[in-house]
Design a protein around this nucleic acid. Sequence first.
DNA 1: TTCATGTGTTCAGGATATAGAACGTTCTTA
DNA 2: TAAGAACGTTCTATATCCTGAACACATGAA
Lengths: 187, 187
Amino acid sequence: MNASHFDIDVGARLRELRIRHGLSQRALAKRAGVSNATVSMVEANRISPSVSGLRQILSGIPYSLSEFFAETHPPAEQVVFRAAELKEIGGGKISYRQVGANLEGRSLQMLHERYKPGAVSGKAMLSHQGEEAGLIIRGRMLLEVDGARYELGPGDAYFFDSRKPHAFRNAGEEDLELVSACTPPSF
Amino acid sequence: MNASHFDIDVGARLRELRIRHGLSQRALAKRAGVSNATVSMVEANRISPSVSGLRQILSGIPYSLSEFFAETHPPAEQVVFRAAELKEIGGGKISYRQVGANLEGRSLQMLHERYKPGAVSGKAMLSHQGEEAGLIIRGRMLLEVDGARYELGPGDAYFFDSRKPHAFRNAGEEDLELVSACTPPSF
DNA sequence: TTCATGTGTTCAGGATATAGAACGTTCTTA
DNA sequence: TAAGAACGTTCTATATCCTGAACACATGAA
């Protein structure tokens, strides 16, 4: 289904979190209300804890199951991206300039977008969960989300669930310029 | 620590996913290589499956543990936020204007930021995992990430892992204006 | 009706996780 | 040195999960 099923190493992940928070196995066990032996064996992958058991262990850090199983992203390398080197994604009437080079494994995507007058984009229905937001820098935008229409000017912004059908249009005579962000990356 | 620990209902979640994919308990059990009794009891929350057991069940859908435990966000309400109604978060020399009213349960946060000359902000060490990105609209910014310093002008952008220590400073004589996004929300 | 097939649930026994107490090691401090 | 405390690991009885086989109910066909 979704890519990247590099089945998580529960033991290693627990150990990593515990140590990052400066806790010993016994300290964590005490805070969580479980035995230190359990923590030890879970970390060594000698046993596979029940979901409720793992939840209890994590409560001592504290961490939620969602956070525990959230994909771990490799650290970012390049920090600053000059205006000239922003990667051009679109072409023609719409220009998407992406902040960041390789978004593989990232949870955030930011774009510097330019729409020529009359340019339209958008998606009918969406694949995966996510959110997107944007803020208008220059020009006028006509936004349609889930059937409703809005006209936005400089300083105005939007925020919605990516699964809703949506469309963007340059509603003015000059170029439309905006900064958008979405999670997770859609390209 | 982080808010929103509405402990997930494992049984209900599994049942929801199974039915959404048009599978009976037995069909799922067969594909996953477990007994139908297990699926039944897990869905009824009569037992709390081991992590490995749950992983095996999910392999029949298929679903990863990450996807299974991913927070389900309530649908967004308001879509458009006028420049005048963007919620002001900071004060004084730095103004943060947040896109979106209530970010509880959201994974994305976007800010329209203004720094007066000399204004500084940033964090030494970070609590939780996440990423942040930004794009300069006006003015000059001095960015420090993990010890390295960069000067950015209009159109320039940044992207880094939130856990790295970082600081922002208005390095010019005029106001600094930028759009930033981070995940997950830090306020 | 009667049979066949589908659904989800419940039961008893073998497999596995967990608690509590022991173990061996590595420090620090006297 | 030795004593003490902290660390992670290992042992054994008990609690829990998980299977394979029944169970009860619904639907559709003959």
